[in-house]
Every structure is written in structure tokens, then in C-alpha cells.
């Protein structure tokens, strides 16, 4: 009996001592740095997966920079945060600034796949290496190689390799629009477009840079401009520089006629996500 009381008393005393010590430390030490408090506040709104697409080492470091200078949010934006309208608004409320997000953006691959193979490539299995060897091993020198350099950098595992078409496909539901993959592609095939864009061109055949001795890609855009003619209100315009149709990301108007009339069927419809 005596012992039990002793145990209870000693545990209580030690516990109380610890509690009082923490209280004293909490009470009498100077207030913590305001910047640190702000940083932690901001970092709650960041995705927290440390993808590094914003250019800072991790979300917490990025939050620290925003705490110092709010303009960083605009100059080197976190695409993941900007995609989420509610979070941006909440962050604006927390900081007492008026913030508005852009539209949700996703990445698309400008290649339809299924291009025939010109020669058998047995080198290092990365797209960058394959691109070095006489403009690639596929008949189309501008297409996707399908080795998946972009797959490796995707923080959300949104990119996979289509076994039939032998190119990469991006899952628009998983894609967060961070844009890390666009820098990886040696062919510059991946572009970040607004998620509400109703169609995109699944081809990047640059006829103005034609390579002598190469056949045209039989599956790609033949530059017939039927899509431009089919669009009544100029939803589709012609990009003279690339010699390819152009869908204005600012307008995002659907053009079902262009999708239907394209003789090569390289204008793909997108479902809004």
C-alpha cells in the first residue's frame, strides 16, 4: 500500500515538474521569430512533396522565401498550389493579401505515337541518349521515343508508357501541372495547357526543319489547314512559325469541326477535368 502511494506520488511529481518546466520555458522565453511563424503558416498550404519545380529546395524553403517576399509567389510560382483555387484563396486570406489563382493546368504530349521504326536502337535507354543518334530511331524525327525520361521525374506518377503506341501518356486526373516533365523531354513534346482546353494537336511535325532524306511521318499533321478552314469563328489559327495548327490557350474554345475533319485524326479531344 505504502509503495503504491509512493509510486503515484513520485510519478505525479515528476510529471508536474516536467509540465511546469515546459510552461516556464514557454512563458519566459522571448517570442519566436515572426518570419518563422509566417513560414510555417505558409508551408501548410504548400503541397509538401518537395518536388522542387518552383526552383527552391523543398516546400519549406519556398515558404521561407515567400514569407520574406510575397512577390516570389508570382515570379516563380508553385504550379501545384496555383492549380488549386481554394488553397490559393485560403493562403491569401491567411496572409491578408488578395491572391487569385490561374486556371488548373495539365501537361499534354504532342505526339500520337505509332510511328514506324527507322532503325533498331540498342543504346542507353533514355530519350536524351536516343535523340543524339541521327534524330532518333523513329521515322518521325520529332516524336516521342517512349523511354520515359519524363516518367521518372513526375512526382505524382501521372505519366505512364502506353504499351501499344510506344509513347508516354499523361493521366490528366493525376497531373498537377508542375511542369517538371516539360524540361525533361529532348523533343520538347510536353506542354502545359489549361485543363479546360477542349482539344490539342497530337503531333509536332516541324516541316520547316525538314531533314533531307527522311520521309514524312505518315501519321502526323500534313499541314493541309483543313482544321483552320473548318473552324468558323477562328477557334483554330495557323502557327506560321511551326507550320502547325494553333489552339489559343487564352480562349480555350472547342472546335469539334476541326477534330472531325482532320484527315489524319491528330487533333485529340480532351475531356475537361
Amino acid at each position: 500500500m505504502d509503495n503504491t502511494v509512493l509510486i503515484i506520488v513520485s510519478l505525479t511529481l515528476v510529471g508536474m515538474g516536467c509540465g511546469i518546466a515546459i510552461f516556464l520555458v514557454n512563458r519566459f522565453l522571448p517570442e519566436e521569430d515572426k518570419l518563422l511563424k509566417k513560414t510555417e503558416e505558409i508551408s501548410k498550404f504548400l503541397p509538401g512533396m518537395n518536388c522542387g519545380a518552383c526552383g527552391y529546395p523543398g516546400c519549406f524553403a519556398y515558404a521561407g522565401e515567400i514569407a520574406k517576399d510575397i512577390d516570389i509567389l508570382q515570379t516563380s510560382p508553385c504550379m501545384v498550389l496555383m492549380n488549386d483555387d481554394k488553397k490559393v484563396k485560403a493562403l491569401g486570406n491567411a496572409l491578408g493579401v488578395d491572391l487569385s489563382s490561374g486556371d488548373k493546368k495539365v501537361a499534354v504530349v504532342h505526339c500520337g505515337g505509332n510511328s514506324e521504326i527507322l532503325y533498331e536502337y540498342k543504346g542507353i535507354d533514355t530519350c536524351k541518349a536516343a535523340a543524339q543518334l541521327s534524330s532518333g530511331f523513329k521515322k518521325c524525327p520529332y516524336g516521342c521515343f517512349g523511354f520515359g525520361d519524363c516518367v521518372n521525374v513526375c512526382p505524382e506518377n501521372a505519366i505512364s508508357i502506353d504499351p501499344e503506341k510506344k509513347i508516354v501518356v499523361i493521366d490528366p486526373d493525376k497531373c498537377i501541372g508542375c511542369g517538371l516533365c516539360t524540361k525533361e523531354c529532348p523533343q520538347n513534346l510536353i506542354e502545359i495547357i489549361p485543363a479546360k482546353m477542349p482539344q490539342y494537336l497530337a503531333c509536332n511535325y516541324l516541316s520547316k526543319k525538314n531533314i533531307p532524306g527522311r520521309e514524312r511521318c505518315p501519321l502526323g499533321c500534313i499541314h493541309c489547314r483543313i482544321c483552320v478552314k473548318a473552324s468558323e469563328n477562328e477557334e483554330v489559327t495557323w502557327n506560321e512559325e511551326k507550320d502547325l495548327p494553333f489552339f489559343d490557350p487564352e480562349k480555350c474554345v472547342p472546335s469539334p469541326a476541326a477534330v472531325e475533319k482532320c484527315p489524319k485524326k491528330v487533333i485529340f479531344e480532351r475531356n475537361e477535368t
Binding site: 516536467c18 509540465g19 518546466a21 515546459i22 520555458v25 514557454n26 522565453l29 522571448p30 517570442e31 519566436e32 518563422l36
Partner: peptide, 13 residues
Amino acid sequence: SLVQILEITIRRT
């Protein structure tokens, strides 16, 4: 509790 105290101390100072 010691770790807690240490963390608060470092954080504040």
C-alpha cells in the same frame, strides 16, 4: 518533456 523544452528553446532563440 526534455526534448520538448529543447525544441521550444532552440525555436525561440
